[in-house]
Design a protein around this nucleic acid. Sequence first.
DNA 1: TTATGTTTAACCCGCG
DNA 2: CGCGGGTTAAACATAA
Length: 297
Amino acid sequence: MPRPGRNTYSDQKPPYSYISLTAMAIQSCPEKMLPLSEIYKFIMDRFPYYRENTQRWQNSLRHNLSFNDCFIKIPRRPDQPGKGSFWALHPSCGDMFENGSFLRRRKRFKVMTSEHLAPSKPSEAAHYLQQHAKLRLSALGTHLPQMSGYNLGVTQPSTFKHPFAIENIIAREYKVPGGLAFSTGYPLHNQLTTAWPHMYSTGMMDTSAPISMSTGDYSAYGVPIKSLCHGGQTLPAIPVPIKPTPATLPHHLPAFLTNSPQSLSPTSPQTATSQSSPATPSETLTGPATLQSVAVH
DNA sequence: TTATGTTTAACCCGCG
DNA sequence: CGCGGGTTAAACATAA
């Protein structure tokens, strides 16, 4: 309904897996975590296809949430009652989706449980996120909100992320195909569009409105991108270490906590290089990808 | 009761 | 063909 006009692709199934869709939803939120219902909403808002057969796909989605280690459950705090928990992306699974490989993951993200370098067990990650959220909010003098609080979010523009980070992709949706978004300088733009046709082309939102995203659409699920700019907050967009430290990264968690304002450091240089090379966005994942995620199962 | 979560299992598909 | 990722169904458990 948010797209009365030409809902051309309305009935076709988006090429994204539930994992991707879920990740998108989560990433779109400043807090980087959403309750199940909001994830549903996000998907339904953007992809008309999912406005039907809700029973079916939502069941599948829930299955994915539980089944995949890349999603972690963050329990609600007593002061933020509501149903269900919040879901977030495992801090170290950022690479899983990076490089534009959203259409299909290369490997199932598996947490290196037990023994050695169990750098990031879901529990820890969850705890971290929790703490993080708590800190930020408290810093803002706010209580952990249900949904409304999310707009306190940050995701400031400065936290530049890899052009293929879900975040960016999502962001572009609101930034209009025109490409004035920050990805302007990326030669990848093109590939992006092909990779995410559903998001760009014939956007469901009025592409007519430039930086828009404005109003309606977003407020729907409380992810007002605009709010990112203000808020006098310093913390970076949050967890999901969209990648850097290819190999080792046992200590990434603490890293966030220290909230180095610009986690951008890791990604930016990288992006620069990767983009310079003809590298195909989707593949070219190459080497390091295997870090701590194992393919077992 | 319903929304959430968790599990198990069967299938489909693309890739090596 | 086998493997692994993704999808769908369905049974169950649990919390609000």
